[in-house]
Amino acid sequence: MKRAGVEIRRALASDWPAWAQLRRALWADCDTDLAELQQLLEEDASTVLLAFAQGQPVGLAEASLRHDYVNGTSSSPVGFLEGWYVIESLRGKGIGRALVAEVARWARAQGCSELASDTALDNAQAQAAHKASGFVETERVVYYCMGLDEPTE
């Protein structure tokens, strides 16, 4: 798909450097390798989309099918936007919305009637981007964890 000089397409194994660069920008502590990308590309239950402007990588969307319960949804499977990123200098120009639209097309083709996503409670920018792309907030959750190395009393 091409929109306003931006091409959005499914990633190829040869896109590994661009994918890894965008993924690290989204998740700073993320180690990515070609084998991981190839695995995602081979799975029917996931998709990796890249956006390019003038041949340069500018955006990323990764999505999967979730068959377990997804907060705020009422169907299964649910398309789930696992990660979504547009380089800062091009935000607000519709690239993120176009990536979400392509993920929604993919999810519909997989038999989904809902697309879900999440973001951190303190990430107001991501929350605004989700709303601008058509998502509706369904609930807020705080997760907890307790280490089990030492007994608690």
Results as ranks from 00 to 15, higher is better:
70 V>C: 04
81 L>F: 02
78 V>M: 07
130 H>K: 08
69 Y>F: 15
96 G>V: 00
110 Q>M: 15
65 L>G: 02
1 M>K: 05
125 Q>R: 09
36 E>F: 01
81 L>W: 03
24 R>E: 13
110 Q>E: 14
103 V>K: 00
9 R>H: 09
76 S>I: 04
90 L>D: 10
22 L>D: 02
13 A>D: 14
5 G>Q: 03
121 L>R: 10
11 A>R: 04
114 E>M: 08
81 L>N: 02
104 A>L: 08
40 L>F: 11
149 D>G: 13
94 G>M: 01
124 A>T: 12
105 R>Y: 07
80 F>R: 03
135 F>N: 02
100 V>L: 06
140 R>L: 12
92 G>I: 01
56 Q>F: 05
38 Q>N: 15
105 R>V: 11
2 K>S: 10
42 E>Q: 14
132 A>Y: 00
38 Q>W: 04
145 C>F: 12
120 A>W: 08
139 E>S: 14
126 A>E: 01
85 Y>F: 15
35 A>Q: 12
92 G>S: 06
66 R>Q: 13
80 F>Q: 01
134 G>H: 05
109 A>D: 15
118 D>N: 14
58 V>S: 08
66 R>N: 12
148 L>Q: 15
73 T>A: 05
69 Y>L: 15
151 P>Y: 07
20 A>H: 11
80 F>S: 02
145 C>M: 10
123 N>G: 05
148 L>R: 14
96 G>Y: 01
91 R>F: 05
85 Y>C: 00
115 L>G: 03
33 D>A: 10
11 A>N: 06
138 T>V: 11
10 R>S: 15
133 S>D: 01
33 D>M: 09
91 R>G: 01
96 G>C: 04
130 H>G: 07
94 G>A: 02
131 K>N: 03
102 E>Y: 01
49 L>A: 00
72 G>R: 07
32 T>K: 08
98 A>G: 03
97 R>H: 09
86 V>L: 05
89 S>M: 04
50 L>P: 06
148 L>H: 09
50 L>Q: 06
130 H>I: 04
77 P>I: 06
30 C>A: 15
